[in-house]
């Protein structure tokens, strides 16, 4: 599992390959916070290659969303598969995040 970061159209895009769970959530958090400290304000986390997320993974997204908003930035999510959508809906976090069906849709919506 790993987090790959790239920059597309002024947006920091993070691909989550594998799981986003209690054992690796800090790695994602640090990567995004480093970019935020470096001055980046637009973030997209893409879950196209993600297996599953647990409550710690959801929690890190909530925490990052808050920190990015505090810096007047924006965080968007894309490519949630059916299982991941179920998790967001169960926890009502689908109401908290801006979630796009595709990476392209998310990138053009900033």
């Amino acid at each position: 599992m790993s987090f790959h970061t790239s920059k597309e159209n002024g947006v920091v895009v993070v691909d989550v390959d594998g799981q986003l769970i209690v054992g690796n959530r800090q790695e994602l958090k640090q990567k995004v916070l480093d970019e935020l400290e470096g001055g980046e304000r637009r973030f997209l986390i893409d879950f196209a290659n993600t297996g599953y997320i647990d409550s710690s993974g959801l929690g890190v997204l909530v925490s990052l969303s808050k920190k990015i908003r505090e810096q007047s930035g924006e965080l968007r999510l894309s490519n949630l598969n059916e299982d991941l959508r179920t998790l967001f809906e169960l926890t009502k976090l689908d109401t908290l995040f801006s979630i796009a069906d595709s990476r392209e849709e998310a990138l053009t919506s900033f």
């Binding site: 409550s55 929690g59 009502k92 908290l96």
Partner: peptide, 11 residues
């Protein structure tokens, strides 16, 4: 809902 924790048992 804005809390980073507390969803484990719920799930």
């Amino acid at each position: 809902i804005h809390s980073p924790g507390g969803r484990g048992l719920f799930l």
